[in-house]
Amino acid sequence: MTARLAYQYVVLRCVPRVEREEFLNVGVVVYCQATDYLGVAWNADRDRLLALDPRLDVDQVCDALAYVEAICAGDPRGGAAAAQPLGQRFGFLKAPKSTVLQPGPVHGGVTADPPRQLERLLTQLVG
């Protein structure tokens, strides 16, 4: 029988105009402590984002998502957060921020394969 591992995840939302409380899911971050896994997958659909707000700087959203990738990977481009242990990096990424890219609530589950679960969540929640 395959081991079932607990994991947590947050959906990353693009919120172009906070006052309107409209958002589009653009990514997912998965953290599995048991396997020392922290990963992100994202899809910033330019047409859908611009339909939400034609003035949105989509390149800026992509840069913010690349920053999240760097933090997950422990890449120096992620700054001081990228140098922290995985659990603290996930804590940083799941903390609410008042920027265009915001994390949703933390959810959990079990999986035998955290990277595969990340891809499933991306397909299911982002498209």
Score class of each variant (00 low, 15 high):
I71W: 12
F23P: 02
G79T: 06
D75N: 11
N43Y: 12
Y37L: 01
A64V: 01
G108I: 00
L52R: 14
T35M: 08
E119S: 06
L5F: 08
L5W: 13
R13V: 01
R4H: 13
G109R: 10
P76R: 08
L5C: 02
P85G: 03
E22A: 05
Y31R: 07
Q117W: 01
L49V: 08
V58F: 08
L56I: 07
Q88H: 07
I71Q: 08
A34V: 03
G108Y: 09
L38P: 06
V40A: 06
G127S: 10
N43K: 12
L12T: 10
G109A: 01
P96N: 05
V15T: 14
V68R: 09
G108L: 00
G39Q: 09
V30Y: 00
C32W: 08
I71L: 05
G74P: 11
A44I: 01
V29L: 04
Q60W: 14
I71K: 10
V18P: 02
V100A: 09
L65Y: 02
A82H: 12
S98M: 11
L101Q: 10
V30Q: 04
L93D: 03
G127N: 11
A112L: 00
L121D: 01
Y7S: 06
N25V: 02
G91I: 01
A3C: 01
T99L: 06
N43F: 07
R4T: 10
N25S: 05
C62M: 08
G87E: 15
A82C: 05
A81S: 10
G39V: 05
V68Q: 13
Y7F: 13
L86D: 14
G91T: 11
P76G: 03
Q117E: 15
G78N: 05
F90E: 03
P103E: 13
P96R: 07
L86Q: 15
A66K: 10
G87C: 03
G91E: 15
P54T: 02
M1R: 07
K94A: 07
Y31K: 07
R46A: 06
P76I: 00
P54I: 00
A3E: 15
A70Y: 12
T35S: 13
